[in-house]
Amino acid sequence: MKKILLMGNPNVGKSVFFNRLTGANVIESNYPGTTVDYTKGYMKGDSEDFEIIDVPGTFSLEAKDKAEEVAVKMLEEEKGALVICVIDASKIERGLYLCLEIIERGYSVVMALNMWDVAEDKNVQIDIEKLKNILNIPVVPTVAISGKGFKEVVLSIKKAASVGVKEIMERVGETK
């Protein structure tokens, strides 16, 4: 069964995401670091089933504490896994940092710009098409607590592929 890792900064809604995808009932609370261990679940895709792993939040792949160590170790152990990178759209920069680190290590990534509603409230404008073109990965705006964008996330899983950082850098140069 293909594995999917849910990764992202602390407190961006990974566990709510997990519950949405698997129908599980993981405890959510509005504090960073609520998930220090990991949770596993299963999801039915349209053609195949997936094992979903809710990874603790981390700011980068250079671990600074226990929860981050777990996160980095899990990523390293699951070489063939697909990663859904959950980003707080209202704090997109930090999320992109981690996401790029994951892409750099060769993983297939789907980017979920979660808390899209919060970003809209804060007047944060994100050009999704441009992000997609530069990164060449699926980018989906989502609201985990309401379920917005989840269908598209599941449909995007098939389209995710490993991309080269060098090519991304070249495309960044072109759009400048």
Binding site: T58, S60, E62, K91, R94, Y97, L98
Partner: peptide
Amino acid sequence: KNKVAGMG
């Protein structure tokens, strides 16, 4: 540097 870069 790397430690705080991920926090923006």
